[in-house]
Design a protein around this nucleic acid. Structure first.
Ligand SMILES: [Mn+2]
Ligand SMILES: [Mn+2]
Ligand SMILES: [Zn+2]
Ligand SMILES: [Zn+2]
Lengths: 140, 140
DNA sequence: AGCAAATTTGCAATAATGTTGCAGGTTTTG
DNA sequence: CAAAACCTGCAACATTATTGCAAATTTGCT
């Protein structure tokens, strides 16, 4: 069975055109996507509201995770196998390229633990590194 | 001289009611603030636009820095002495409490370096830890 | 295939958030 | 104190996000 359908079925989601198209986009794209990217790619074939709801559904199901940023953009990227239904395990570093603007999941780079001041109990960490990505570096 | 005036003078900013009030709020607050917090605290005495512009000015001058989040809120917190005019040096970890919602600058906790895949050149890192803060832990 | 139930979508309305130009007001400079 | 520099508030506009509800689609079942 198609990977796309497999993911939707596994998460007990109805298979609809919008979900297929949006999920397809995530499977094809190496980096992260913002709401705006999806609207552009799908050529506004789906209502904005549908895109919002689809992204939220995918996050809830553990199909995609979001990436913290300092500006006001919410970015999303595909989760690996281990995430499921409300339990995310995306403890990898994210890289944002200053040159091309692309955000990459560095799945093989684990977020290091840090020693916190007395009394703080950590549960989950996020780390974003900015700089120049491998692709842009190679073009120099 | 008052700390408040000192900071404004040092950054060659006109001393206005709005800037005094907003800066005062940052000096008093242990955690981070969002635009909405400031509007609430100042009781809408200043126009929204003025608040936006004041925050932007403070960021430009290196008086405050912003903090990455996964949702759509931009948070701001005071910078330490070393930041100035467009050159931020806030390489500390931020902590977001799941219980009280407060975001804290852990100034003494430095963001660790990570080994990136071949070709990636890092320039700047951000790290956010979520969990239960010292204050909330103590109340248990 | 055909039908009923469950789910999803699009539309419209509304809210929240952020940006810009400009005239009038305030602060600074000397 | 006066002129210059700077800052603020208003209005208008733009973008982004949320909600309720009816129509459309998908699913589960015969
Ligand atoms: Mn990721
Ligand atoms: Mn900080
Ligand atoms: Zn790049
Ligand atoms: Zn707390």
């Amino acid at each position: 069975m198609d990977q796309l359908l497999d993911i939707l079925k596994r998460n007990r989601l109805s298979v609809t055109d919008g979900r297929k198209k949006i999920l397809e986009m995530f499977l094809k794209t190496p980096g992260a996507l913002a709401h705006a990217d999806i609207e552009k790619y799908t050529d506004a074939a789906f209502d904005r509201v549908t895109v919002y709801r689809t992204l939220q559904t995918f996050v809830d199901k553990g199909i995609i995770h979001n990436i913290p940023t300092s500006d006001n953009a919410i970015l999303y990227a595909l989760c690996k196998e281990e995430c499921a239904d409300g339990h995310h395990h995306d403890n990898h570093v994210h890289f944002i390229c200053d040159t091309c603007g692309q955000t990459t999941c560095l799945d093989e780079v684990t977020i290091p633990e840090v020693k916190l001041p007395k009394g703080f109990r950590p549960q989950f960490s996020e780390m974003v590194v900015k700089g120049i990505c491998a692709a842009c570096q190679a073009k120099q």
